[in-house]
Write a protein that binds this DNA or RNA. Structure first.
Length: 538
RNA sequence: GGCGCGUUCGUCUAGUGGUUAGGACACAAGGUUCUCAACCUUGGAACAGGAGUUCAAUUCUCCUACGCGCUACCA
């Protein structure tokens, strides 16, 4: 039987980081098994569901590259079927009508209400104590016919237990005595979550349910429903939760945007990088490609395999690699902390995610990065159509020292390649790297202080250096280097003073690539202009 | 309260009845005859506690503590 899994979010907010990981694991499993990855929007809570959040969830999934198969199922479309099932179970005597008047939920603090009630009924609560459980069919029917409102509850057997083999947590058992006669259908005819999920999973022919560990107890309830319906339950795999730094729940209310997938997209994360990070939160591939180690070869004494092949242990995994390595058995059982520091711009989200994003930016094939940078520059209004090489088909790796024309597509690609080395997010291309694409950039005051004002002579020297640049015909690194070195000697100062001063004037910031390549990249004309400019000094 | 699940460096984690308990991120130090958040090198940093089994326990068993989840006519 081919594997069919589903991701089933309820549209009550944006895509939560934990949900995103559930989706990812479902996706990986489906692709690994050659199965289908389906999507179902659980919008049965009319009060809280919004179309907007459904859209935002879809957007998040799309951003992560988790494309689904088949049509999206909207749970609310199936409400009639759910009701029918409830009625069928009722007629088969597997469920019963509960005429207890509906309690008005003190919706302010429903969680507290639950806790209070639980504490109050401290002793052993009788889950089979519902007075309507054993009501005769005749009386039940006539009261219903008389128009008395009722909920439909599943009639859980007195003795026994539910059990299932969880792919992650192993054998799970729960005594019936721990499970209430759960409500299937509300007194207003509204089907409830557990019923809806079971019906839809059956309808969609789901073979494996992969979801958060917070559903562990629901699973027992759902198995009861499967059994009542006479359907074999699917396999289950529960995932550990993702926690906040204080090991508490990672909630949108408390932690805000940090838990939303759109935050990462908007902050300049690369989807492949974030996906990679997410996958490793709660999963480790079993022994990464060790077989890649070739040549066990001798060379007497030296038994080390060739280091260059020792890719083993790398945490950078492409989607295909993840799919290839994925196995439910390798998912962890303990929760993982998503680490971040509020109010710390350098550690605003998990350090490892940030590092991974930087790693992707500087190591991924340039061709793959370019479109992302283009989008970023566009949204920052820094994009110029000349950067696009679409259809031009020029030689990227041009031999020789002749420089691409400033502003050309070739120049653009070289520039991106140069500056990406120390960027963390796509945003950096339009902020830190702004000076490469625009004349309108800011000067970092700390950089000005440290590299310019500390050496007042630079106010004269740098424009003077600009003058010497005029004489360079072939404005390339070797030529520039010779000129700058000579200039430095003439002034009897250190190279660093000149270079860092120039860096500040040319780029506005204190960090960046080698200054020679910066000169070359910015180009002769602009370099001269910027060196002569006095605005940074004020 | 009940039921369930969990516990290896700050974080993500590897691992085994006998290991110098490994890696990654972060952090620190040094290097890189121009900076740096990049790169290179080095360093500090963990088996929650207690009993038991065993020649030997981080690993197996039990207990405790702590954390998390669920406990709704929400999903």
């Amino acid at each position: 039987m081919t594997v069919r899994v589903r991701f089933a979010p309820s549209p009550t907010g944006y895509l939560h980081i934990g949900s995103a990981r559930s989706a990812l694991f479902n996706y990986l499993y489906a692709r690994k098994m050659g199965g289908k990855f389906l999507l179902r929007i659980e919008d049965t809570d009319i009060a809280r569901s919004t179309e907007e959040s459904a859209r935002s969830i879809l957007e998040g999934l799309e951003w992560l590259g988790l494309d689904h198969d088949e049509e999206i199922v909207f749970q609310s479309d199936n409400a009639d079927k759910h009701r029918e099932v409830a009625k069928r179970l009722l007629s088969e005597g597997k469920a019963y009508r509960d005429f207890t008047p509906k309690e008005v939920p003190s919706d302010a603090n429903i969680k507290d209400a639950i806790k209070d009630r639980a504490r109050a009924g401290q002793g052993e609560k009788n889950m089979r104590g519902n007075p309507y459980r054993e009501l005769s069919a005749e009386e039940s029917d006539s009261r219903a016919a008389a128009g008395e409102p009722f909920a439909i509850r599943l009639k859980v057997a007195e003795i026994g237990k539910t059990s299932f083999e969880d792919a992650v947590y192993g054998l799970q058992e729960r005594d019936y005595a721990e499970t209430e006669d759960l409500v299937l259908l509300r007194s207003d005819g509204h089907p409830l979550y557990n019923l809806a999920v079971v019906c839809d999973d059956i309808e969609m022919a789901i073979t494996d349910v992969i979801r958060g560990q917070d559903h562990l107890t629901n699973t027992h309830k759902q198995i009861l429903i499967y059994e009542a319906m006479g359907v074999t339950p699917p396999r289950f795999a529960h995932l550990p939760l993702i926690l906040a730094p204080n090991k508490g729940k990672l909630s949108k209310r408390k932690h805000g945007e940090i838990v939303s997938m759109t935050t990462y997209r908007d902050a300049g994360f690369l989807a492949p990088a974030f996906r990679n990070f997410l996958a490793l939160l709660g999963w480790t591939p079993r022994t990464p490609p060790a077989e890649l180690i070739v040549g066990d070869t001798e060379v007497e004494g030296v038994l080390l395999a060739d280091e260059s092949t020792a890719r083993e242990g790398s945490e950078i995994l492409s989607l295909d690699e993840m799919i290839g390595l994925f196995a439910l058995e390798d998912i962890h059982r303990s929760n993982a902390v998503f680490n971040f520091k509020e109010n710390d711009p350098r550690h605003w989200t998990d350090d490892k995610a940030l590092w991974m994003n930087a790693e992707y930016i500087r190591t991924m094939p340039l061709d793959e990065l370019l479109p992302y940078v283009k989008a970023e520059l566009k949204s920052a209004k820094l994009w110029r159509d000349e950067y696009d090489n679409a259809g031009q088909n020029h030689l990227r790796e041009r031999v020789g020292s002749s420089l691409p024309e400033h502003g050309s597509s070739e120049w653009y690609e070289r520039t991106v390649d140069l500056i990406r080395q120390r960027f963390f997010t796509l945003k950096d291309f339009s902020t830190q790297g702004r000076a490469y694409f625009s004349e309108d950039f800011d000067f970092d005051s700390a950089a000005v202080e440290k590299n310019l004002k500390k050496f007042p002579d630079l106010r004269e020297w740098l424009p003077e250096l600009a003058g010497t640049f005029e004489g360079i015909d072939n404005f390339t690194e070797p030529a520039i280097e010779a000129v700058v070195k000579a200039f430095t000697e003439e002034k009897g100062t250190k190279l660093g003073v000149i270079m860092n001063g120039a860096r500040t004037l040319l780029t506005g910031v204190a960090v960046g690539p080698s200054m020679l390549s910066v000169f070359e990249t910015i180009g002769k004309e602009k370099s001269i202009l910027r060196l002569k400019s006095q605005i940074a000094w004020n």
